[in-house]
Amino acid sequence: MRLWDRLTGRKAENPAAALYQAVVARGREPHWYEAGQVPDSVNGRFDMIASVLGLVMLRIEHEPEAAETTARLTECFVEDMDGQLRQIGIGDVVVGKGIGKMMALLGGRIGAYRDALAPDAEPGAFAAALVRNLYRGENPGAEALAHSADAMRALRDRLAGVSHDELLAGRLP
């Protein structure tokens, strides 16, 4: 944010805002919660949005603008999660710790998904990563897990064909 904007209280538009809004919309699609059996709860919605965000960040990490885009996308995530925590009544003292934990959860997902989706990953590695990270250790059943794994792999594959500029414009496949 520029100094003048801070002094006048104006907030500069985050260039990754449209992308973050598209990530949230994708993470809120009903099929994740219905066919995928992701718990439709505060934690479940966080887990789903963080999982979609993780896939988007994995896509972006190979771009020349990766550091800038990732930083801006992370700012959107932190601002959103800060607001969500405050909205459910979490006080100022605890919000910072909550955001720190959420950032660690996001980072853990990115690493787990990167490893599990690597060409040399063992069969079943991605499903196991989803059980740990999306379902918090509770296996949702073969059908639900297959739905989520297939849908997330399809999203990852389609993201590969979208330009960086299209992503920033919020055009997820």
Rank of each mutant, 00 (worst) to 15 (best):
G124S: 12
G100I: 04
W32H: 11
E61Q: 12
L117H: 02
A149R: 06
R59E: 01
P30A: 15
L130E: 05
R156D: 00
T74A: 02
M103N: 13
L134K: 07
Q37C: 15
G124D: 08
A104T: 15
I88S: 02
D40R: 09
F46I: 10
H62Q: 11
L145R: 10
L19E: 02
G54Q: 05
D120H: 09
P15V: 07
A104G: 14
L73F: 03
A160Q: 13
A67M: 06
R109P: 01
A142L: 13
D40W: 06
Q84V: 02
F46T: 06
A116S: 15
M1Y: 10
N133K: 13
V94R: 13
A146F: 12
G170W: 01
G44F: 10
R132P: 09
A144M: 14
A67E: 05
Y33H: 07
D120F: 07
M48Q: 09
V56M: 04
Y20N: 01
A142I: 13
T70H: 10
V94Y: 07
P119E: 10
S51K: 05
G108I: 05
A154W: 04
I88T: 00
L134W: 05
L106Y: 04
A67K: 04
A142H: 11
T74R: 02
L106T: 04
A154M: 08
V93C: 11
N133H: 14
V94T: 13
A116E: 07
N133I: 09
N133L: 10
E122W: 10
A128V: 15
P30K: 12
V38P: 08
G91R: 11
I60A: 03
D40L: 04
L168K: 05
G89A: 00
L117P: 01
A18C: 07
F126C: 04
A16G: 05
